[in-house]
Amino acid sequence: MREPRPAPERLKGRGAGSNREGRFESTTVEHVDDGWFRDDGEAPPHPRTTVTEERARSIISRNQSPDIPFQQSVNPYRGCEHGCVYCFARPSHAYLNLSPGLDFETRLYAKTNAVERLRAELSARGYRCSPITLGINTDGWQPTERRLGLSRDLLQLLHDTRHPVSIVTKSALIERDIDLLAPMAAQGLAEVALSVTTLDNRLAAGLEPRASAPHARLRAIRRLSEAGIPVGVIVAPVIPVVTDRELEAILAAAREAGATSAGYVLLRLPHEVAGLFREWLDLHMPARAAHVMSVVQQMRGGKDYDSAFGTRLRGQGPFADLLARRFHVARRRLGFPGSPPLDCSRFVPPRPETPQGELF
């Protein structure tokens, strides 16, 4: 039986303020504080991170969305310890009968057979090479990657088979893999994008508590660029009234660090994320909460979120149009040259594994 859900609280190192039920739950449990189990002034419970191993049946996800610039992605983890309160992937935890709130950032799943499955799918007779994106539904370079190294192992396989890869991350841990990315980039096989939400360390600590600090992400952009790896910046998400004023500053800082491409994504609040973000505003910015959501709804047709292709990433209305104009003017002024296309012609399918080993 599910334990009662505590009232929303600010928890150090966590983005969500509660463990609200997912949309598939048949019951809702309300918290009643009768004073028996907490004394006044006692610190709130600190949820610990757990990682459960799972065996994936398949690993490559195919995408047909017309507004997404990739067709294939691989996610070695479910859930993400970065704890970004705005993360559009949070609702995926509801399919596991877990909360998109604190469960999403504390109860993680690692696909320990990810390399095995990717090897099998790349060697399939009907496979057609197109770039694979690592780190879409959850960040492949989140803290648990330091110990498990699943993304590193996947990248090694793509390196060995000369398969093109693109990476999106909020983690400076990506610097660890420059030794693989640099030779791939020299052959037109790799590109990386760092997602930057804000340059304000204090704000970042509240919005995305366990992601790399803004200055660390800019350092990663510089080091990747110096290694000859095409690297871009994604200002994401742009949060009206909270981070939108930083758009030009983030682009300028990333360009100075060596970024060659740039993009942005408007705040997205699908399903349970809307309630979690409203809780976050009430806990962290109560004086601005109503204003923030008012502008969000002006950009989403009067709703918290509109999932329509073509507008879900950019929004609509005067504020959205102004944001788009500001971005395009800044990108042109700063002279982002763009990244070259990835090369799919070099791919060599992996050989099927055999107990006899390799003779040649």
Score class of each variant (00 low, 15 high):
R147V: 12
Q156E: 09
L189T: 05
A172G: 04
T112D: 05
L150P: 01
S130T: 14
R107N: 13
R107C: 12
T169F: 01
P100N: 12
H163M: 09
S171D: 04
M184W: 08
L108D: 03
S151I: 07
R146L: 10
E105Y: 11
S151M: 08
D153H: 09
T106Q: 09
W141Y: 15
P100M: 13
Q142G: 05
A186S: 14
Q187M: 13
D160F: 00
E116R: 12
Q156D: 02
D160R: 06
E175L: 14
A120N: 09
L158D: 03
S171W: 06
R147M: 08
V192K: 03
R125N: 06
L157P: 04
E191L: 12
Y109R: 15
A110R: 07
E145L: 11
N113A: 04
T197P: 02
S151T: 15
L181R: 09
S171P: 06
A186T: 06
H159T: 05
K111N: 13
G101S: 11
S195Y: 02
R162S: 15
P143M: 08
L189I: 10
T133F: 03
D103V: 14
S123Q: 14
A172D: 15
S171V: 07
D160G: 01
E191W: 06
V165K: 02
G101K: 12
R128Y: 00
S123C: 11
Q156A: 13
K111E: 14
S166M: 13
H163I: 09
V165S: 02
H159I: 00
R146V: 01
D179R: 12
R117T: 01
A120P: 00
L157H: 02
E105K: 11
L154W: 08
I136F: 12
L158Y: 07
S130F: 03
A120L: 14
V165T: 09
W141I: 01
S171C: 07
R117H: 03
L157I: 05
A172T: 04
S151Y: 03
E191P: 01
L118E: 00
K111I: 14
S130H: 07
V168I: 15
P131N: 04
R107A: 13
W141E: 02
I136Y: 10
K111A: 13
R117K: 15
T138R: 05
H163G: 06
P131H: 05
M184L: 13
G135K: 11
W141K: 01
A182Q: 13
R176K: 15
A114M: 05
A114C: 15
V196K: 11
C129E: 11
D153I: 01
L118N: 01
G135P: 08
R128E: 12
A114I: 05
G188K: 10
V168T: 14
G188N: 09
S123D: 01
E191H: 10
A193D: 12
L102I: 15
S166Q: 14
L154H: 08
L154P: 06
K111C: 14
E105L: 11
P183E: 11
L102H: 13
T133Y: 00
D160M: 01
L181V: 10
L155T: 03
L122F: 02
L173F: 11
T197N: 09
D179Y: 15
I178F: 05
H159Q: 08
P131W: 07
F104K: 04
